[in-house]
Design a protein around this nucleic acid. Sequence first.
DNA 1: CACTTTTATAGGACAGTGTTCTACTCCAAT
DNA 2: ATTGGAGTAGAACACTGTCCTATAAAAGTG
Lengths: 191, 191
Amino acid sequence: MPTVKNPRTPATEVRANLIAAARQLLEREGSDALTVRGVAAEAGVAPMGVYNHFDGKDGLLDAVVTDGFREFGARIAATDSDAAARLLSAGRNYRAFALDHPRLYELMFSTKCTPDDEVATGAFGVLVDIIRYGQAANLIMAGDPDSLAAQVWACVHGAMSLELAESQPPFLDPAENYEHLLLMVARGIAA
Amino acid sequence: MPTVKNPRTPATEVRANLIAAARQLLEREGSDALTVRGVAAEAGVAPMGVYNHFDGKDGLLDAVVTDGFREFGARIAATDSDAAARLLSAGRNYRAFALDHPRLYELMFSTKCTPDDEVATGAFGVLVDIIRYGQAANLIMAGDPDSLAAQVWACVHGAMSLELAESQPPFLDPAENYEHLLLMVARGIAA
DNA sequence: CACTTTTATAGGACAGTGTTCTACTCCAAT
DNA sequence: ATTGGAGTAGAACACTGTCCTATAAAAGTG
């Protein structure tokens, strides 16, 4: 009997399979393993699928990081009724996501990718809402919530970016230092 | 007449030429242009030089970012006698360097490179000294200067990382937002 | 100065990359 | 049942990092 050909993957699944495979390969083996042929093989799909369903490799990566930002936004959200606790929880959730998906996090904020604007803005909006909640509780200083959120985001992103790149002084405990950073930021934007 | 062969580059210059060429190519055409063959051609040197003088492409990039950190440390330094002004000046110098050399800055803090530890620590030490100066002037809170410096560094790095990646809300003015961030950080570590 | 050792060079080779093309074949809707 | 869209296999192209060889020029030695 002749060699059995691979069956076709239903059209509706090719796209999702490719994104899932890319995500899995990225987190398991690192970004170097993110090759078109490798992702297609992991997804059980022909390499051409990357070009039929996405705009080449870059398009696929954009879809991956867009999915990442969706998950990220949901993960950051904190529901503590106390405004100060909510801000700290969000900060800790932020770090937890970055540590859980270090390579995805790096990709999400790299210049190689352009996530869907609406989705990325949505994740940012989660933080803006938390800032607003703090302002309403008179815990956070008055001012443009978007601007304040951008500043807070920059701080936590910088901390995680450096921690993941192992660019921090090795004698400092990352977890402890991150807690200090959160308190510093809270002090910096306090009412 | 036959084609003239390229003359040999003196051994002592090959290394420096390669680093300079890589740096120039990086900042002129972006990191995609940083190929072994491309850098060698820009340096007027044979591709093998990258393997004779460095540990392959990665070794060359490490040398480039190490040079970058040397320059960075010198650039950050501020000499204002007023402690608060010195901190702000250093912060502004930080941003100026990142804007002057955006692609080098990105490479310096990417996971693809490992700068010489001593040099990178030296650049960090510049900020530590500024923190100490602020503490001596009773402007910055007491506490481990290294830990405080790491927090400040994280904030400014995050801001520039997001600005260079154009990951900030487009309706915010980067320069203005950065100034706000510096003030926020100063407030966060104030005595 | 002559001689030896070191080292840069040219050029080819290898596997692997993103991308595109063709030919084929299967699935689904008309 | 037939037609057209969509997934597949496989080859091809110009690149990439890396390594190898042979040659020639520079640097160091007597």
